[in-house]
């Protein structure tokens, strides 16, 4: 069975499970919203622009992503999904690939809540004129975070204290991506928005591609115990 078909098979199963239980996405959205409220008081400002605005968008996203990553293999471990997968002739790397795509989709779905909430609650300028730039940067950041998340969750399969290991690994790996996203968004979110400096989305894309390449080389070893 080919890798891409397996990715699709696992992804379809995961989306069906998430649709049925519908627990991860609401939890991530609630955590992101709660973080925004904390930021409102931590920054002590009713509305933020520029650097602070970019940070106030990215920090809730990071927290929500951490939640998503630590739950990535929860269903598999609970119901013996990894054993099931390993008993089948499907290529092992495809399981990790499906998890990365699934996490990316969940993060993108989260933006549907996160971006309007940010525009209404925190951002001091109208968001609509710069929406395209913001969504582009978030899209690239989501892909990068999903790749990091897939790799880290894969490393932590079978770890005893997964919920400890996963966040402390994800955060340092995500820092370059968050720096790039912050540098890309900050000028865009200034009053009288500046144009997007293309090198930052470029950096994000390069980082995502490098991680994906590394993951495709080493990822299969994580599933095949």
């Amino acid at each position: 069975m080919s890798g891409l078909r397996t990715v699709w098979t696992v992804l379809r199963k995961d989306l069906l499970l998430e649709r049925r239980s519908f627990e991860l996405l609401p939890a991530m959205a609630l955590l992101a919203l709660g973080t925004m409220i904390v930021l409102r008081f931590a920054l002590d400002q009713d509305a933020v622009v520029g650097d602070l605005a970019a940070g106030a968008l990215l920090v809730p996203l990071l927290f929500a992503a951490l939640l998503g990553v630590s739950r990535l293999f929860a269903g598999e471990e609970r119901d013996g999904g990894i054993e099931q997968f390993l008993l089948s002739p499907a290529p092992p790397g495809a399981l990790l690939g499906a998890k990365v795509v699934g996490l990316a989709l969940v993060l993108l779905a989260l933006e549907v809540v996160l971006v309007p909430a940010f525009a209404l609650l925190l951002f001091g300028e109208p968001l609509f004129p710069v929406l395209r730039e913001v969504l582009l940067v978030l899209f690239l950041l989501d892909l990068t975070l999903a790749t990091i998340g897939g790799l880290v969750a894969g490393m932590a399969i079978g770890a005893r204290s997964r919920e400890l290991i996963v966040p402390i690994l994800v955060v340092p790996l995500a820092i370059p991506a968050l720096i790039a996203a912050q540098a890309a968004l900050a000028p865009v979110l200034e009053p009288g928005a500046e144009a997007l400096a293309w090198r930052w989305p470029g950096v994000l894309a390069i980082y995502a591609v490098v991680l994906a390449l590394v993951g495709s080389v080493v990822g299969e070893y994580l599933v095949e115990d």
């Binding site: 790799l151 894969g154 490393m155 932590a156 399969i157 079978g158 770890a159 005893r160 204290s161 997964r162 400890l164 290991i165 402390i168 690994l169 790996l173 820092i175 370059p176 390069i206 980082y207 490098v210 991680l211 590394v214 993951g215 080389v217 080493v218 990822g219 070893y221 994580l222 115990d225």
Partner: peptide
């Protein structure tokens, strides 16, 4: 901490090696 949290020695070596590769690639990018 990653190594210590995985009991099975074979799995531990696998995960640690993947970490080493990913982190090694991370160094110059960072």
């Amino acid at each position: 901490p990653l190594r210590l949290s995985i009991d099975d020695p074979r799995r531990q070596a696998r995960a640690a090696s993947v970490f080493a590769v990913v982190a090694g690639a991370f160094v110059p990018i960072n």
